[in-house]
């Protein structure tokens, strides 16, 4: 992850100089500033560290926080993967991947196992992360207490005193109104037994993957200019009640394309008559399994049918519905 020098300005006519960027877009001073914030965040797991967030060439809500974190840690020899709702080729993922390909010239991949840095919006890949990998989460609202306590001065004091009873009031309200803890994404966690943390709008299905992960987990919130982190092998516990323990979503049927079980599925509407299929939200995981010969109920064996590339990704986000449990649509970070 060492920095490469800025790429030499390509030769061009004097009248119309070609646009060039510093490596990974941000200037070196900014990247140093962000790295200092990242180091502090790693030193205090789960604690939100303010940083002087910059204007990025994309709107807030499109991953500006994650992009700045990625830019600050990216080196010339890194291999970058970007996913949005588990998919490598939705607009947000494609845009960010090509942004860094253009400004840093780094290699990119869709393979979780090949990536050294994975920037993500709303998912953690199904394939277990490994030591040496870094996952960068895009965070819309970093403060887990915000909707309960609007005053920043008060939420800071609550973090300072580990005064987190209020978060359970939210869970209490869920059970009182829905009969169970209806929070299904951005499900609050306690990091290293100390700080309460918003894991970004990942489904709670992914929460257990954060616990004791060998990878470094970094979180960047561009609009609110906060960075926080979970160092490798840190205890991450999802909040719950003794008599309403934390549980992840379960799906009634395996992936229709790759027959995977125990993975997070997206619902895909197939026609106007309402027929639907449930497929892996993680497109790389699905494609890898299909390449390995796993076949679901709605797809012929890999390579034998027309599409030569992995199947079209399910439309992620708006129809994210589990079979066994209704999952409300995440409000999403896009304004």
């Amino acid at each position: 992850m060492s920095d490469a020098p800025a790429r030499p300005r390509p030769a061009g006519g004097p009248a119309m100089p070609a646009i060039t960027y510093n490596f990974a877009y941000l200037d070196e001073q900014t990247k140093k500033m962000i790295r200092r914030a990242i180091l502090k965040a790693i030193a205090i797991p789960g604690h939100q560290v303010p940083f002087a967030g910059r204007e990025m060439p994309m709107p807030y809500g499109w991953g500006t926080g994650g992009v700045q974190v990625t830019a600050a840690i990216l080196g010339a020899d890194d291999v970058l993967k970007v996913i949005d709702q588990g998919s490598d080729d939705t607009t947000n993922a494609v845009a960010i991947r090509s942004f860094f390909a253009a400004t840093a010239g780094v290699a990119t991949t869709t393979r979780t196992s090949e990536a050294s840095i994975i920037q993500t919006r709303h998912r953690i890949p199904e394939a277990p992360l490994a030591s040496g990998q870094v996952i960068v989460y895009q965070v819309p609202i970093p403060e887990p207490l915000r909707f309960l306590e609007p005053r920043e001065t008060e939420t800071r004091r609550m973090h300072g005193l580990a005064d987190y009873g209020l978060m359970h009031v939210k869970l209490y309200e869920d059970i009182a109104h829905h009969g169970h803890i209806a929070t299904t994404y951005a499900y609050p966690v306690r990091v290293a037994g100390r700080y309460l943390m918003d894991p970004s709008p990942i489904p709670k299905f992914d929460n257990p993957k954060m616990d004791d992960s060998p990878a470094l987990q970094l979180f960047g919130a561009g609009r609110e200019k906060r960075i926080y982190a979970i160092p490798p092998h840190t205890r991450v516990v999802s909040l719950d009640f003794e008599d309403h323990p934390f549980a992840v979503q379960r799906f009634a049927a395996p992936c229709a394309l790759c027959a995977a079980e125990g993975v997070y599925l997206d619902e895909v509407i197939l026609d106007d008559a309402g027929s639907r299929m449930f497929v892996c939200s993680d497109t790389d995981h699905c494609a890898t399994r299909q390449a390995d010969g796993h076949t679901g109920t709605m797809r012929a064996p890999y390579g034998s049918s027309a599409p030569s590339s992995p199947p079209p990704p399910p439309h992620a986000g708006e129809n994210e519905t589990a079979l066994a449990e209704t999952v409300p649509t995440p409000s999403g970070e896009r304004p």
């Binding site: 009873g165 209020l166 359970h168 009031v169 059970i175 719950d240 009640f241 003794e242 008599d243 309403h244």
Partner: peptide
Amino acid sequence: VGERLMAVGARNYG
């Protein structure tokens, strides 16, 4: 009403 109880560590919903 339950908030104070949760604030001092009550973790049993029932």
